[in-house]
Nucleic acid binder design. Structure first.
Length: 597
RNA sequence: GGUCCAGUAGCUCAGUUGGAUUAGAGCAACAGCCUUCUAAGCUGUAGGUCCCAGGUUCGAGCCCUGGCUGGAUCACCA
């Protein structure tokens, strides 16, 4: 039983004893004592005033006396206004630390059948262009949330739905046929996704030329945009693809394979992976049967022209198209079909979709329609919605060339980390491979941490220059602290000190250190909260706070040189445990920590 | 126009189910600190109408109402 729940129950007893009143345990608020006050834990007594009918100070004293007498580890208390600050005995904190030390994978729960089984879909790229900065946020969030859910005991299935069909793919294909001169990733010495992306841009350029020409010949701009020969040809290509035309399908397959190989490389560098990859070319017709059933049951309705709709007016929304006049599926239909399939095939309890906030409306409607169709799991689909990534120069526009390419960005981060390491002479004495491993970890840590520390739902500003700043609330700062902790442990060993498995209980430690232990003990709660909120930012900011506290306390107190051997041992144990937490916490963000840097 | 999201220091961001005279970090600026656990660090100074106005409460950056500003979205696109 935790100290908080013991105090809680005793506070209820105290109120029953002193005032003959019973209070709900929700009214008992216990929090960490703020740093500037003496004590470890604080009970807020304001809610009890109407029971005690005494002043806040008197009430706090009454309860304080009761707690001091009835709980062994409550060593003392003081009262400031309506706040009852309890001093908890050192031995308690040390036993908490020892408990944490002895827990393998501290903060992580083993997989449990009691927890829900969750599918998480993320990344979801188009195969007509390479991944960009927005995808990076998506991928990092998806991977990190999957890790966090696993650490909370959930079984997690990571999936990727690749959008490999549609008019945009045909545009790249057409431009490659027309202007490519047989270029391949090998001959051009380019990643496949970049090569295909190049032709997507090429299409757009040539298309614009055609449109301008048509306008020059007197066409109305709207008409010109629709009648440009390249566009008509691309549309024709899509029709052929859907009809299964051998040549078109072969080309489509070839270029898609290039792109997918390119994506794999990028995912690998980013450190993300999937348990299953879906292709839209295989799923785009799904959902039609479910919609037809809904139509029969009268949940949906059909217009005279043949299209099928859902009336969402009762939910304050408009009407939503589900099948076109020609009976073909739209995006929503497909999502209905794949959701149904996934819940049934994998027997999942929940489904998380990591998709940008421009699709908030889509997912709101998806859940409502599934509810209308009678699926009880319709409220078990969660849209993990994230904000746009903006640049200092303004918004990213692929047509204006202001997108930040994922591969370029990662390479730039690695280059910068290497340059800084060399400049500081940090990695002297390392082999080339070892050095490369370190600055790659640092570079990726910088990028990942910068993005994950921000609340997912907020739009964020990505400043490439700032992200490569290795100070402050950044990944490298945290990695650096970890490396220093490992250095302490190594030095202690070199000096012949055996780092004990546990700290000695009868020891006087500073209030700062008991505060640090409280933070250590908090880690499992933070992991749990991050799971509930699906927010890596909680973990990131917690780890930063812990690191900052650690640095501030121990910068001036070299642990290995502490003369009191019991205290030194205690500090070695605490420091090692904090290192463990940094490593575990960062792994939930998909960030590696180097032993030295 | 309807719906949803956001607004906290010059900039980028935290702020746990409402709690403490003084709302926190980092960056940028200024001033210090290398016999230290690794200076990729630490310490200090300066910087605020928590968008505005009401309301609820012993207590509001947080909750409610109304407004302002910015963003997203409202396709027989995906």
């Amino acid at each position: 039983m935790s100290i908080e729940s013991i105090i809680k129950s005793k506070v209820i007893e105290a109120i029953a004893g002193c005032y003959e009143q019973s209070v709900d345990d929700k009214m008992v608020q216990i929090q960490k004592t703020r740093r500037e006050f003496e004590g470890d834990l604080t009970v807020v007594v304001f809610p009890f005033l109407r029971f005690s009918r005494r002043s806040p100070e008197e009430t706090a004293n009454d309860i304080g006396n009761f707690l001091k007498e009835n709980i062994e580890v409550v060593a003392d208390f003081n009262v400031v206004k309506g706040f009852l600050n309890l001093v908890i005995d050192n031995s308690y904190w040390i036993s908490v630390l020892n408990g944490a030390v002895q827990t393998p994978k501290f903060g992580f729960k083993p997989q449990s059948a009691d927890e829900t089984k969750v599918m998480i879909e993320y990344s979801s790229p188009n195969t007509n262009k390479p991944l960009h900065l927005g995808h990076i946020r998506n991928n990092l969030l998806g991977y990190s949330v999957a890790e966090i859910l696993k650490a909370n005991g959930h079984e997690v299935i990571k999936v990727n739905l690749v959008n490999d069909r549609g008019i945009h793919i045909c545009k790249s294909m057409l431009a490659w046929l027309r202007f490519g001169e047989g270029e391949t990733p090998e001959s051009a010495n380019m990643k496949g996704d970049h090569l295909v992306g190049k032709y997507y841009v090429k299409f757009d350029q040539e298309y614009k030329k055609e449109v301008e020409q048509l306008i020059a010949y007197g066409k109305h701009p709207d008409e010109a945009k629709k009648q440009a020969p390249l566009l008509l040809e691309a549309q024709e290509m899509l029709r052929k693809w859907e009809a299964g035309d051998d040549e078109v399908v072969a080309l489509w397959r070839k270029m898609n394979d290039w792109v997918l190989a390119g994506f794999d490389e990028t995912y690998k560098k980013m450190g993300v992976d999937f348990d299953k990859v879906y292709f839209e070319s295989e799923t785009y017709k799904k959902g039609k049967a479910i919609v037809m059933k809904g139509l029969e049951e009268g949940v949906l309705y059909q217009k005279e022209t043949g299209s099928v709709w859902a009336n969402m007016e009762s939910d304050g929304l408009d009407h939503k198209l589900l099948l076109r006049d020609d009976g073909t599926s739209v995006y929503m239909t497909q999502d209905i079909g794949t959701a149904y399939e996934r819940f049934n095939e994998f027997n999942i309890d929940e489904h998380v979709y990591v998709v940008g906030n421009e699709q908030n409306y889509h997912f709101q409607v998806l859940s409502l329609i599934l509810g209308k169709l009678g699926y009880k799991w319709h409220d078990k689909i969660h849209h993990l919605s994230y904000g746009m990534v903006e640049l200092p120069e303004g918004k990213m526009k692929s047509r204006e060339g202001t997108v930040v390419d994922a591969d370029d960005l990662m390479q730039e981060m690695v280059n910068t980390a290497r340059d800084m390491s060399n400049e500081l002479g940090k990695l002297q004495g390392y082999s080339e491979e070892e050095a490369a491993e370190v600055f790659t970890k640092v570079a990726m840590g910088a990028l990942k941490y910068f993005i994950l520390k921000v609340d997912p739902k907020k739009n964020m500003m990505f400043n490439p220059k700032e992200s490569i700043d290795f100070n402050g609330n950044t990944g490298p700062f945290i990695q650096y602290t970890y490396a220093r902790i490992q250095s302490v442990q190594r030095k202690a060993k070199e000096e012949g000190l055996t780092v004990p498995e546990q700290a000695i209980a009868n020891l006087t430690i500073s209030e700062k250190e008991s505060y640090l232990i409280q933070m250590v003990a908090d880690f499992p709660n933070v992991v749990s909260d991050a799971g509930k909120d699906r927010s890596p930012a909680l973990i990131a900011n917690y780890v930063y706070d812990l690191v900052k506290e650690y640095n501030q306390f121990y910068h001036d107190f070299p642990i290995a040189k502490e003369e009191n051997t019991d205290l030194r041992d205690f500090r070695l144990v605490l420091s090692r445990q904090i290192g463990e937490i940094i490593k575990n916490g960062m792994s939930l963000l998909g960030i590696g920590v180097p032993e030295r840097m």
